[in-house]
Design a binder for these strands. Structure first.
Length: 312
DNA sequence: GGCATCCTGTGG
DNA sequence: CCACAGGATGCC
């Protein structure tokens, strides 16, 4: 579940079901999901089994659990997770899988545990399953470091500690500590197309291909406008548009095109219906009626209205 | 800073 | 068979 709103939906699902529980076991069905774990499965198991999950935190698309030892001491490292293109976190309880509905009118629900790669067993008998069709995501531990500005590291914890492996990730647009004028200035220092800057997680995090196209549509700006061609005002308007569209998507439970993108109970989000540009090639622009175009961009696609989105 | 690369799967 | 898919990274 790729972009910020979908990851935040997962974080909110995990929080009440995992915080305060202790990890009692680790099951690795596919070691490729541990690619980022130094020392592999054995080291991961040694680092997490017996420890208690005390917070679930998110910055951009990175998630992590804070860990405490049996004696209550901070463990000094986090259990980090990234969902990649196709990762899911699913919670199962001792009473069985909490039903797995997909989108409406989609026929029979697929096997809810297809592509299960790693499971965490918790002391209350529940299980967190990490599912990942394409294996771009994963789980790993990483030592905690202090955020450069000393502010809360992400959503879900008040302190400034974050995993070293996420320390290069900028703050996201739902983070109260994000400095929008400063982000806008960084965008304007660069010649690269504004869309690639929106996707650069070290500039501003959480935005992916869907919400980049949606933000640019809302701000009436073309994907290939050079960052340096934007006024401060327009750069800020693009960032505000991105923040707003992600807020709205979060309120709708995220964007789901198929059963790959679901919350911890297997439910889809409903924001796909509200997308104006992404995935709407040849459909009329909701603002001016011109057909939305799709063009190749950076090994993927950009969707835009050729009439009301301008280079500026 | 742009591009291939890591993967599996679906749809035409 | 080919194109395409919500991402991050490592390498010129």
């Amino acid at each position: 579940m790729p972009e910020l709103p979908e990851v935040e939906v997962v974080r909110r699902g995990l929080e009440p079901r995992t915080v305060g529980r202790t990890i009692s076991g680790l099951e690795v069905l596919d070691a490729r999901s541990l690619r980022r774990q130094a020392g592999g499965e054995d080291r991961l198991r040694a680092a997490i089994v017996g420890r208690t999950l005390t917070a679930v935190v998110r910055r951009g698309k990175f998630l992590w659990w804070r860990l405490h030892d049996e004696d209550g001491a901070e463990a000094g490292e986090a259990l980090a997770a990234h969902l990649g293109m196709s990762g899911q976190m699913r919670v199962t309880t001792p009473h069985g899988v909490p039903s797995a509905p997909a989108l409406p009118d989609q026929g029979p629900a697929p096997d809810p545990l297809r592509h299960r790669r790693v499971s965490l067993h918790l002391d209350d008998g529940s299980r967190i399953d990490f599912l990942d069709q394409r294996l771009f995501g994963g789980l790993w531990t990483s030592p905690l470091v202090e955020a450069a500005d000393g502010r809360a590291a992400g959503l879900g914890s008040p302190d400034a500690l974050l995993p070293a492996s996420a320390a290069h990730i900028a703050r996201d647009l739902l983070d109260p500590a994000a400095d929008l004028p400063a982000i806008a200035r960084r965008i304007r220092e660069r010649r690269a197309p504004v869309k690639s800057l929106l996707l650069a997680q070290e500039v501003v995090s959480g935005i992916g291909n869907i919400y980049a196209d949606e933000a640019l549509w809302r701000a009436r700006t073309r994907y290939d406008t050079p960052g340096e061609a934007l006024s401060q005002r327009r750069a800020l308007s693009v960032l505000r548009a991105a923040g707003e569209v992600m807020e709205r998507a979060l309120a709708a439970g995220g964007t789901s095109f198929d059963a790959l993108y679901v919350d911890v109970e297997g439910n889809s989000g409903w924001f796909a219906r509200e997308l104006a540009a992404y995935g709407r090639e040849r459909e009329p622009c909701p603002r001016c009626g011109t057909a939305i175009r799709r063009v190749p961009f950076m090994n993927r696609s950009s969707h835009f209205c050729p009439r009301c989105q301008r280079r500026r």
